[in-house]
Design a protein around this nucleic acid. Structure first.
Lengths: 207, 207
DNA sequence: CTTTACATACATGCGTGTATGTATGTAAGA
DNA sequence: TCTTACATACATACACGCATGTATGTAAAG
């Protein structure tokens, strides 16, 4: 039974992306064949080549689907909270961790990006592209830290660039480690405590 | 000109592992062909199949070469320092970061494990295997934290298991992020400061 | 009647594993 | 000490499957 309307085509496309997430998660991006993804979506490879240029294009589309909600959340947080930079850092970090913890799709895609694909040149997920995204994120963190330092919330001796890198690495590490074994503990419950652990080390001590 | 003595065979094996590191780093484990690795080592695929069972065996041998020095270092630190658990955590973390920062081979292999291979079942680097190694490491950290709590060095309210996970995730994240762009800053120089950042957040506040 | 949204069929290449060839090292026996 | 016999350390050649990309077919929508 073939689908011919535009709406049905969108459904097929969506099912292909769902199937891609699942198959990539099982086999890894490199080993997953387009035939298997198509089969999991109930179609043939013809459908994939109709909707996407090739495997890399399929991967990119899969990433875009979850990138948008995350970017939206980060933008929402960064909008007005520069008067309280430390709380901005705290809230944005907790939000991202909670999103990964609660949304199965985001969790799956993170797992694929962190553990089921290879970041090499001319690959499905480019290393340069990943580096650039990271750079932007760290830059945003650095701004908040510099602001906090100007406000005397953290010691004047700290290096904003290094600290921003460490902050990013911490969050990235938490997500990466957690998705490897989501059943270990509730990330949403523990997120505030774990974030505060690093934040308290950063904060200026009261006298 | 072929090599026939046992010593020369060891040299060939070593060159194959060197070549594997380089080619895996360039192309990723999945895309790297055995023919290319053999060619980079100046031999043919026959040599690989003589020294190793298959691609997975080659990868494992490559990992063992750097795993041993790291394990040795961790063991060395964990031997006697349980009377000062917080310093043990600090020293072991700084040691690992310094090793990655200074040893190009360790750095390359870490980069391969973190960014150039896929952690799926029946893969070159097994997910279960990785999980188990992580579990052991976290367990060792947890012991130190529990000891520190008993000694009143850290608040009694903290959860050792969660904290150990966070500590591991932080170090893992720092390494993972840094190897993606080693030129960004000197990891060896900044390691103590970054480790202390989380350690200070963990430590009990003086009154 | 044309375009869409796929399914089907085909050609191609590439990587793996294995089987076999081969030159050298090495140890034992005379 | 010299030869024989076998093992070592690869190189070469072959067969096979599998994934990709593309070309073509086709039924329904507009």
């Amino acid at each position: 039974m073939v689908r011919r309307t535009k709406e049905n085509a969108e459904v097929t496309r969506s099912q292909l992306l769902d199937a891609a997430e699942i198959v990539f998660n099982e086999k890894g991006v490199a080993r997953a064949s387009l035939a298997e993804i198509a089969s999991a979506a109930g179609v043939t490879r013809g459908a994939i080549y109709w909707h996407f240029k090739d495997k890399a294009d399929l991967v990119h589309a899969m990433l875009e689907r979850v990138k948008l909600p995350i970017d939206e959340m980060v933008d929402k947080l960064s909008a007005n909270q520069l008067d309280d930079p430390l709380n901005y850092l705290r809230n944005s970090a907790i939000s991202v961790l909670s999103l990964v913890a609660q949304d199965a799709q985001t969790c799956r895609v993170f797992d694929i990006v962190k553990h089921k694909c290879e970041l090499v040149a001319d690959m499905e997920i480019g290393r340069e592209h990943e580096l650039q995204r990271r750079s932007e994120c760290i830059c945003s963190i650095e701004t908040a830290i510099t602001t906090a330092r100007e406000q005397g919330l953290i010691p004047a001796t700290i290096n904003p660039q290094i600290t921003a890198f460490a902050w990013y690495a911490y969050i990235s590490g938490l997500i990466t480690c957690w998705v490897l074994n989501p059943g270990l503990f509730s990330l949403a419950d523990e997120a505030p405590g774990m974030i505060d652990m690093l934040l308290n080390g950063l904060r200026k001590r009261e006298e």
